[in-house]
Amino acid sequence: MRTDYTIQQGALVIRVLLDDPSTTLRLIWRGQSVERNPSTFLLPFFTQWANEAEECGFTLSMDFSRLEFMNSSSISPIIAMVQDLKQRRVPLILRYDGKIKWQSLSFAALRVFVGGPGKVTLDDSGEEVLPP
């Protein structure tokens, strides 16, 4: 099974990628997330793919390392999604570039979700994991 499509909302582009035999559903963020109320479209989007990941036993990976910028309003739905996935026990990997100041400031606070029930991993290496 292969999934590869892109959604766009304003300056934000998210590529949804799943390649056989991989069991990791990847959401790769590009552009900028600067909408005033991004929860309105991000939350349904996250729910859709969280459901898919849970149903199929996939790991969900969100890659922000090449995202140019994200406002504080965009982080709120991401936090909600992390809380939801942790509760559902769906493995989640958050990739970002710790060398980029705004990314470090935005994602370091989510280290509280690492450990405990539900498998949340933070990868701040900034290395882009390219599709095979």
Binding site: I79, A108, A109, L110, R111, V112, F113, V114, G115, G116
Partner: peptide
Amino acid sequence: ETHGTWIGVVSDMSVPA
């Protein structure tokens, strides 16, 4: 750097980090 997490992220701040 400041460390920890933000207000409202977790209801109980006794979790590590």
